[in-house]
Write a protein that binds this DNA or RNA. Sequence first.
DNA 1: ATAGACGGAGACCGATCGGTCTACTAACAT
DNA 2: ATGTTAGTAGACCGATCGGTCTCCGTCTAT
Lengths: 188, 188
Amino acid sequence: MPSAPETKLLQTAQRLFCSEGIHATGVARIIREAGVARKTLYDKFGSKENLLRAVFRAEAEMWFRWFDSDLPATGATPRDRILYLFDLLRDWFEGGSFFGCVFINAVAEHEKEGGWVREIALDHRHRINERLRGLVVATGAADPDMTTEKLSLVIDGAIVTAMVTCNPAAAEIGRATAADIIDHAVVQ
Amino acid sequence: MPSAPETKLLQTAQRLFCSEGIHATGVARIIREAGVARKTLYDKFGSKENLLRAVFRAEAEMWFRWFDSDLPATGATPRDRILYLFDLLRDWFEGGSFFGCVFINAVAEHEKEGGWVREIALDHRHRINERLRGLVVATGAADPDMTTEKLSLVIDGAIVTAMVTCNPAAAEIGRATAADIIDHAVVQ
DNA sequence: ATAGACGGAGACCGATCGGTCTACTAACAT
DNA sequence: ATGTTAGTAGACCGATCGGTCTCCGTCTAT
C-alpha cells in the first residue's frame, strides 16, 4: 500500500511528464505541484529516472486493465471488443488530462539507439500486441499477424493524432479504420 | 544560399534533435559535432529555439517535395500515388538516420497547452492533409474527409511504429492498411 | 510518556544549461 | 596594401538542473 505522498508524486509526475515533457519537467515543479518535500521524492523513488519507471508501470496497468478486465466484461464478440477498445481510447482522450502516451512521448525525447526507455516501450508494445492478437485470432482473421500489426499501428496513430490535434475524434477515426481492417481480413 | 557552416549546423541539429531528443541535445554537442564555433550558431540562428524552427522548415520541405514533385512524377493513378507515399516512407525509415518525425517528437516533449511547438506541428499537419485530400478526392472515395483523416492517422501510426520498433516494415503495414481504407471507401 | 518513523521546509552542492563576448585568423574585394 | 567580412576558439555569465543533507514537527505504537 503506497503512502499518500507517494501516490500524489506518481499522479503529478504522470500528468506533468505527459503535458509538459519529461526533460522539461524539473523535480522542483513535481514536488511543488504534488505538495511534497523533495526528500520524500528521493526516499520513495530514489531518482527522477525511477519516478519515470513508476509512471511507465502505472500506464501499463491501465492498458492491462482495459484488455484483461474491461474488454472481457463487455461480453461482446471479438470484433466488437476490438472496436470497443477505441471507445476506451475516446474516454481517455476526452478525460481532459490526455497529453499523449507516456511510452511514445518518452521514446520521442530520449536517445533511440541503445537507450533503456525505448526498450521498455518496446516491451510494453509486445505485451499489448499479444493481447490484441488473441482478439484478432478469435475473429477468424485470415492473416492474424498482419492484422494485429495493422491494428497496433492504428492505435498508435490514434494516440498521436489525438495528442497533436487535441481532438478526441481521433478515436472515432481509428475505430472506423479498425473496422476497415477487420472487414478486409475476415470477410474474405 | 546558406553558408557551409549554416548547412552543417542544420543537418547536425536535425539528426541530433530526432535521435537524442531536443531538450537532451545541448548546444555544446551540436556545435561540436557540426565542427562549428558557438558564435556562428548564434550569428546564423540567434537561438536554439530558432534552430529548431529551421529544422521544422527543412523537414516540411521534404514532405512538400514528396507530394508536389515525387508523387506527381510517378504518373500513377491517385490510388497508387497514395500507396507510393508509403514507399517513400519506407525509404525514409530505411535510411539509417530515421529516428521519428521531428514534428511529432517535438510535440511529445513540449508543453501541449498553449505552446508554439504544437501550433507549428498542427499547421504542418493541415498542409499535408490538404495535399492528401487532393489525392483522395481523385480516387472518387465516397467520404473524402473521413478517408483523408484515416490515411493521415495511418501515416502517423507508421512513423511512430517505425520509431519505437526501429523496423522499416511499419511502412509496409501502413501501406496495406491504406489499401484497406481506400478499397473500403471506393469500391462501395 | 517516550522512542522512532514519516515527512515537510529549504539550504546547499557540482554539473550543465542557453547565451554573450573578446581575441584572433583567413579570405576577399577594392 | 588594406579594410571588411566570416568564421574559430574558448572564457565567461546567471540560471537551472538532479541530488544530498540537516533540522524540525507530528503522529503513533508500545
